[in-house]
Simulated assay, not measured.
Amino acid sequence: MNFSKSLVAGLLIASSFLGGCASNNAQEQAATTNSSTTVDTSDPRDPFESVNREVWDFNWEVLDAYILRPVTITYVTVMPQFARTGLVNAAENLREPANFTNNLLQGKIDDSLDSLARFLINTTVGLVGTIDVASKIGLERKEEQFGETLAVWGVETGPYLMLPFLGPSDPRSFTGDYVDGFAFPMTLIDGTLNLARIGISLLETRAQLIDQEAQLEQAVDDYAFIKNAYFERLEFRVTDGKSADKALGEEQLDDFADFEAMLEGNDFDSYDLPEEDKKEDKEKDDIDNK
C-alpha cells in the first residue's frame, strides 16, 4: 500500500505540470530548423523566460520521457474504456460544487444552478458521479475556476511561470487552483482518494496529448507556441469563448482547438467517449442541424 501511494504521488508530481508540456529543447530545434532564426525573449508577459525554458526542458526531457509518458501508455493500454469514462466522470463530478460557487461569484445564476443540479443528479442517480446522467438530460457542465473569477473581478494574470513539476501557470491561476482545492467536497476526501482523483485526471490529460506530439515537434519554438496558447486559453475561458474570433486567426484557432484540452489540467470536453456515447452525440447534432 505504501508503494502504491508513493507511485501515485510520483505520477502526480510528474504529470501535473504537463498540461501544456510537449517540447524538446526549443532553442536547439529552432537552430536546427533555420540557422538564421532567433528566439525572441522580449515577451513582457514572460520576464523569467530564461529560467522558464530550463524548467520546461527538465519537465519534458526527464520527467515526462522517463515517468509520465510510459505510465500513461500503460494505463491507456490496460484500462478498459468504460472504466476510464466512469473514473473521469467521477473526478469531474467532484468539481461541480466549485463550479457552482465560481459561477455564482461571477453573477451567472443560471449556470450556477445547473452546476448544483449536475452534482446532485450525478452523485445520486449517476452512481457517485461515474455516469454523467445530467448531460444526457441536457444539463451541460459549466466549468468555472476561481482564477477566472479573479479575472472577472479585474485581477491581472501576472508573469508567466513554468513551475518545476507544476508546469505552465501564472500567479492568478495558481491562486485560483489553491482556493478551488478548499471547495466542498474536496476537503472531505482523504489523501489516498484525492491522489487517485488527481492522478486519474492527469493521466487522461496526458493521454490526450499523445496524438499531438508529432505536431508539437514540428514547431520551430514550441515553448513560445504553448506559452501563447496558454494565454489565449486563459482569455478564451474568462470571456466564455467570445475572445476567440477576435484574438486568433483561422489557422491559430485550429491549433488552439488541438491543444486546449492538453493545457486544461482537468478539462475533458474532447475526451474519447465510448462508441454508444459518440452515436448519441451524433444523433443529437443531426437533430440540432435540422
Results as ranks from 00 to 15, higher is better:
D64W: 05
Y178C: 15
R172H: 06
G181R: 04
D57P: 02
T124P: 03
F58S: 03
V238K: 00
F268Q: 00
K142S: 06
Q212A: 13
W60L: 11
D222Q: 10
N24Y: 13
L150C: 08
A31C: 05
R69G: 03
T123Y: 01
K282P: 02
D114S: 13
N25A: 11
A214R: 12
I200Y: 06
R237M: 14
L234R: 09
E49N: 15
A90G: 07
E264T: 06
A224C: 07
N289C: 13
E232S: 05
K108A: 10
I210G: 04
N289W: 15
L188N: 06
R84H: 04
L120R: 03
P44V: 15
V55N: 03
Q27L: 14
R53E: 06
V125E: 04
L105R: 02
Y75L: 06
E235V: 09
N102Q: 05
N93D: 07
V8L: 15
N266A: 10
Y230K: 02
E217D: 05
P97Y: 09
S6Q: 14
A31L: 11
M79R: 05
A22E: 04
F268A: 03
E96G: 09
E61P: 01
D272H: 11
L150F: 08
L188K: 14
P47F: 15
L116H: 00
E61M: 14
P274Q: 13
A207Y: 07
I121Y: 00
L253R: 01
V155P: 01
S169K: 04
E213M: 10
V125A: 14
M162K: 04
F17M: 11
A151K: 00
L188C: 12
K279R: 11
L202G: 00
F256G: 00
D277P: 02
R233K: 12
L273W: 12
L248N: 00
F174H: 07
P44L: 14
S4P: 09
A117P: 00
A244Q: 09
D222H: 03
L104D: 02
K142A: 05
L209Y: 02
D46K: 03
N89S: 15
Y75D: 01
F174K: 04
L139I: 15
S50K: 07
V152H: 15
L18M: 14
G158M: 07
N24F: 05
P164G: 13
T101E: 11
P185R: 03
L202Y: 12
V62L: 11
G19F: 04
G86Y: 08
A98I: 06
G181L: 08
G147N: 11
A214L: 06
I189C: 08
D111W: 00
A247H: 01
D190S: 15
S112G: 13
D132F: 10
